[in-house]
Simulated assay, not measured.
Amino acid sequence: MSDDVILAADNVTKHFGSGGRWLSKAPVVQAVDGVSLRIKRGETFAIVGESGCGKSTLARLLMRLLAPTSGSVQFEGREISAAKGEKLKALRRDVQFIFQDPFSSLNPRMTVGQLVGEPIEVHAPALGKQARQAKVADLLRSVGLRAEHSDRYPHEFSGGQRQRIGIARALAAGPKLIIGDEPVSALDVSVQAQVINLLGDLSRDLGLTLVIIAHDLGVIRHMSDRVAVMYLGRIVELGETKDVYANPRHPYTQALLASIPSMDGPGVDHEATVLGEMPSPSDPPPGCRFHTRCPFVQDRCRSETPVLRTSGDGDHQIACHFWDSLPAAPVPTHKTNRSQAAQARFALHRAASEGGTVTHKTQN
């Protein structure tokens, strides 16, 4: 593995309900199915997709909170998929996790000082009490809190402040990589930007590598270097964030981007490029897993699984048989209204059902 790669996953799979006599008749949930990726040292890497696509499960696999059904995960070249004991403890020092809910992830019976000081006590037991308290105070100040907050309990803080406490706790062990599982989705919109800016500042100042899980592409647009789009347990598009936003090639990515709310107006209705509901991960469709919702589906999509292929534009990769022949995504404008979006949706549905050629038209 290259020196600039800090975390790597090779064909990682995680299936639930596939073992034990009590689960022998339960359907197997294919939460993650054959994911491979490389995360570079010092970058902010985002994993996005709808709820239920497997991104949170993948995050837990990358940190060894879950063991994969198959495949391997390496941190700094060391296999961690089966890490136990001292090896797992050392991994916990280098890789930390920020959970989605800043309230349930903090022990309500512990003060903030105890919560933030616990990782220091575990990973640096030789550090004296006064030195540990001083470090806790420094960590609280680094996330925008005050040192005197260490004597309070989590319920005495707002949601944004609790998430800052969670970030301080994640930083306490001196990690090299932090994984945030929807770190701002439980917060008010007015607070989300503050926490996002905080993570960006800490990453730059401390040289951290960040992996951010999100279902909203608008959240990670300005904070990530690269983005992987997941659908039903698999990565369907991967590349530099600026390239994916400027030129999304997979129909699913186009739908996600079209669904981002715009301050300029209603934009393009995302239903113009995606149909129906996501299938169950316990019974994924054959071939391309997106074919049941794709307006551009063809016979090959229903039987043959597409693999990630480089588009020739940098490291931009797409898992679609026909990505290079599909029309570019329509450009949302504030002049596009609902009736125009409805007309586009009807044309896409009809062309898909008849197997005809679909042509996008941008309204001016």
Rank of each mutant, 00 (worst) to 15 (best):
H250K: 04
A124T: 13
V28Q: 02
F290R: 10
A26V: 02
L23S: 15
L208W: 05
P261L: 04
I212W: 03
Q254P: 13
A319I: 04
H222T: 09
Q363V: 06
A90Q: 12
L127C: 00
V112E: 01
V184R: 08
I120N: 01
R204S: 12
P175M: 02
L206E: 06
L348E: 15
D188P: 01
L127W: 03
R338N: 02
I196N: 11
L115K: 08
L115D: 13
H155G: 05
M263R: 13
D269S: 14
L232I: 04
L66S: 00
M278N: 03
R60F: 04
A329S: 09
R350C: 01
A272P: 13
V143I: 08
K87V: 03
F75L: 01
K129R: 15
S2P: 15
L210K: 08
L238W: 07
T253S: 13
V358N: 03
A328E: 10
Q340R: 12
F45R: 07
H250E: 14
A59P: 11
E354C: 13
R345V: 00
A328V: 04
S24W: 02
H250C: 12
L58A: 07
H334I: 07
R162E: 06
F97S: 07
G117P: 00
G356N: 12
Q161S: 14
L275G: 00
D94S: 14
G52T: 05
R234I: 15
S262E: 12
E277L: 02
H349D: 04
L217E: 11
P261T: 00
R249G: 05
Q317W: 05
Q114K: 13
G54R: 00
Q194I: 05
K89I: 12
G166F: 04
F290L: 14
E271P: 07
R169I: 11
L106I: 06
P27F: 09
D324G: 02
S280K: 04
G159W: 08
N197Y: 04
H222N: 11
A82F: 09
D101K: 02
F290P: 00
G166C: 11
D225T: 15
M63D: 03
P261A: 08
S303E: 09
G20S: 10
I213N: 14
E76L: 05
E43P: 02
L62T: 01
G49N: 07
H123L: 03
E182I: 01
A46K: 11
L88P: 08
R169K: 06
C301I: 12
E240F: 03
L217I: 07
V358R: 08
S280R: 09
D4S: 10
T336V: 08
S282G: 08
S24N: 03
A258V: 09
L275C: 03
S142I: 05
K25A: 09
A31N: 07
K242W: 01
P285S: 15
T273H: 03
K14Y: 07
I6T: 10
G312W: 01
P261N: 02
V331M: 04
R345T: 12
G174Y: 04
Q363I: 14
E237D: 03
D101C: 11
A193P: 00
N11T: 06
P125R: 00
C288T: 12
D264G: 07
F322P: 11
A214Y: 05
A352D: 02
